[in-house]
């Protein structure tokens, strides 16, 4: 066999080896990497939630005067279902509709409170101010206060899941 021919044969074999090495490692990396990404990034299957929790009597609420009310609820947390205390700001609106706001400011999640004297919700972190109907009055808050789904049974208020952007849902 002439030396030149041997040379080209050696080069083709060499490039075959190299191609196979890159190809195989590509397949392995994909076969491990894609499931790993799915495992870490996809949300877990949702276990039954959307339960309703009783928060208390709302018949005696004064209109337009928010009250902070606490309730216990069960929440799925990874592999656990925890029973935790949670709060809501409950307002009876002028038309006697009852609204329950989630307790966190829509800016960065600080706890806000009702300023009786000024008739507004104030967040102490970055001075976001919300009106009694939850709308932003001033400050950096990007959207009105999040609301819980609510149901009235007799005089009692039932609280459901928090409505808001999905990532904000507890």
């Amino acid at each position: 066999m002439p030396a030149e021919q041997r040379e080209t044969e050696g080069t083709t074999r060499r490039s075959f080896y190299i191609g196979a090495i890159y190809g195989i490692w590509g397949i392995i990396a994909a076969a491990l990497g894609l499931p790993a990404a799915a495992y870490l990034l996809l949300p877990p299957k949702v276990r039954k939630e959307n339960e309703w929790f009783e928060i208390g009597d709302v018949s005696k609420l004064a209109p337009e005067s928010p009250v902070e009310m606490t309730f216990r609820r069960n929440r799925v947390d990874g592999w656990k279902i925890i029973s935790e205390k949670s709060t809501a700001w409950v307002v009876k609106e002028a038309n006697h509709q009852v609204v329950a706001f989630g307790p966190q400011c829509t800016h960065l999640g600080c706890a806000y409170h009702w300023e009786e004297s000024k008739n507004e919700f104030l967040c102490p972190c970055h001075s976001s101010v919300f009106a009694v109907d939850g709308k932003v009055v001033s400050g950096p808050a990007p959207r009105p206060l999040d609301r819980y789904e609510t149901k009235i049974q007799g005089n009692r208020l039932l609280i459901g899941p928090l409505e808001g952007p999905p990532e904000q849902k507890a």
């Binding site: 799915a38 495992y39 299957k45 990874g78 592999w79």
Partner: peptide, 16 residues
């Protein structure tokens, strides 16, 4: 419980 969570609720958990 957490292993059961990996196996039954996470995507590709059983594979891992």
């Amino acid at each position: 419980n957490s292993l059961r969570y990996i196996l039954t609720e996470l995507t590709a958990g059983r594979l891992m």
